[in-house]
Simulated scan of single mutants.
Amino acid sequence: MTTLPTTMDEILKLAEQTGAALAPLAADVDAGRSNGHETYRILRDAGLLGLLVPREAGGAGLGFADYSRVLAVLGAHNGAAALGFNMHNVAIGALSESAGTALPPAAEKFRAWLFDEVVSGRKMFASATSELGTGAKLRGIRTSYRLSEDREHFVITGEKSFVSLAGVADYYVVVARAEGSEGTGEVSHFVVSAQDEGISFGEVHGLSAMYGTSTAAMKLDGVKVPRARLFLGVEGMSLFKLVREPHWMAAGYTGAYLGIAEAIYQFSADYVAASPKRAESAVLQRDLGRMSARLRAARALVHAAGAQVDAERGSLEANAMVHAAKYLVGEVGPALAQDALRVCGSAAVSRSQPLERYIREASFSSVMPAKPDECLEYLGKAALGVNLYDAQAFDW
């Protein structure tokens, strides 16, 4: 079993080394010449699956801010791998943050089991939330569950439209509502094993970028899940947890897209520096200056938002900050892409150069939750003093 480093500098060094190993795989995966599963083997072998797991359970115990820094390092090397890796951490992030909090016996047992699966078993988790027509919004979930006749299992039936790490993860954290509870907003999370009978995946979606996330539709046909795999042993509280602490759902991706923005900027700077004539151009210097300013602003806000979450998780200010960070990174990435097109010219559109991939990847931030309009609406409501702890105040 790989033991994670004990200092943040060492963890960032490990992330850099792992990212360097992932980088050469990106082009083949993105072009569909590889299924990308090798990237996740590398992440497993590096021991990074336990970044969020508390130290007393064998992990690195990273908070939201430091995790975002690690994700940015990985994203600068391989955006799709970073996003896929993030899905593992989105699935376990909130549970990892409960470290040190006393829980009821069933919840304590569940938490200990999951941490052991991640650390000792090197098991990868993924989130299975999105459905056709509603996306990742919990209120519209149609996947349903019922208690089995022997009352020892939950039986889950439904379809998910976009499940990253399909065919890669060992477990999927599935969101479902109790049969007959339509419109109540009471949804629950269940841990479904990839080996459970009744699980199937469609073909991996042919995306224009991020093919390496291994994203596909998922069907659950009467899947029987032991009661012990009900998340924390509590039904119906998932939406209310999200309303209080939305940072994983709203901004867990932000570090990966910051990393892609960093890669766009670094490629452009290196491209200009490689030619004395280009490097002496005042026009190109100003273009790089504009890119630098934009990137620094995004980086500062992502880091500040992460620190705010770590300091006062669930506060209105922390929740507003992560929405602001998600919005700004989603704006800055495509803006840098446009700058790079002007600065690098044909090098930006050549499939032989990684910049062409970075430019395509940067635009995907806008389709990941929370979407730009949702971020702005949340921030506007916060500015007007709307009670955002009310589940009815926002379209979750």
Rank of each mutant, 00 (worst) to 15 (best):
9 D>S: 11
11 I>T: 15
16 E>G: 10
24 P>L: 09
25 L>D: 13
28 D>K: 15
29 V>W: 08
31 A>F: 13
37 H>E: 11
38 E>G: 07
41 R>I: 00
43 L>F: 08
54 P>H: 12
56 E>R: 09
57 A>Q: 12
58 G>S: 13
59 G>R: 12
61 G>S: 12
62 L>W: 11
64 F>A: 14
70 V>Q: 04
73 V>P: 06
75 G>R: 09
81 A>F: 05
83 L>C: 05
86 N>V: 07
86 N>I: 00
86 N>S: 10
87 M>C: 10
87 M>T: 14
88 H>C: 00
88 H>P: 05
92 I>V: 11
93 G>S: 03
96 S>M: 01
96 S>K: 02
98 S>N: 09
100 G>D: 04
100 G>M: 06
111 R>E: 03
112 A>V: 06
115 F>L: 06
116 D>C: 07
120 S>I: 07
120 S>L: 03
122 R>F: 01
124 M>L: 09
125 F>G: 01
125 F>S: 05
125 F>Y: 14
127 S>R: 11
133 G>H: 02
136 A>L: 02
136 A>S: 14
136 A>T: 15
138 L>M: 15
138 L>T: 15
152 E>Y: 01
155 V>K: 02
156 I>L: 11
159 E>G: 01
161 S>C: 00
165 L>C: 09
170 D>Y: 05
172 Y>M: 09
174 V>G: 04
174 V>T: 03
175 V>E: 06
190 F>V: 09
192 V>K: 04
196 D>N: 09
206 G>R: 15
212 G>D: 02
212 G>R: 04
217 A>V: 02
219 K>Q: 11
220 L>P: 06
221 D>S: 12
223 V>F: 08
224 K>F: 07
224 K>C: 03
225 V>E: 06
228 A>Y: 04
230 L>P: 02
230 L>A: 01
234 V>R: 04
234 V>S: 07
238 S>N: 09
245 E>N: 13
245 E>K: 13
253 Y>P: 02
254 T>W: 14
264 I>N: 11
265 Y>R: 11
267 F>W: 03
268 S>E: 10
269 A>N: 07
273 A>F: 05
273 A>W: 07
276 P>Y: 06
280 E>S: 12
281 S>D: 13
284 L>K: 12
287 D>Y: 10
288 L>G: 06
292 S>A: 12
293 A>W: 04
293 A>G: 02
294 R>F: 01
301 L>R: 11
307 A>P: 05
312 E>T: 11
313 R>H: 01
314 G>I: 08
318 A>D: 05
319 N>M: 00
325 A>W: 12
325 A>D: 05
327 Y>A: 09
337 A>S: 09
337 A>T: 07
339 D>L: 14
340 A>V: 04
341 L>T: 07
342 R>Q: 12
343 V>L: 03
343 V>F: 06
345 G>F: 13
347 A>S: 15
353 Q>W: 07
362 A>K: 03
373 D>G: 14
377 E>V: 09
378 Y>E: 05
380 G>C: 01
381 K>I: 06
385 G>W: 13
387 N>C: 08
390 D>L: 06
390 D>C: 04
390 D>M: 14
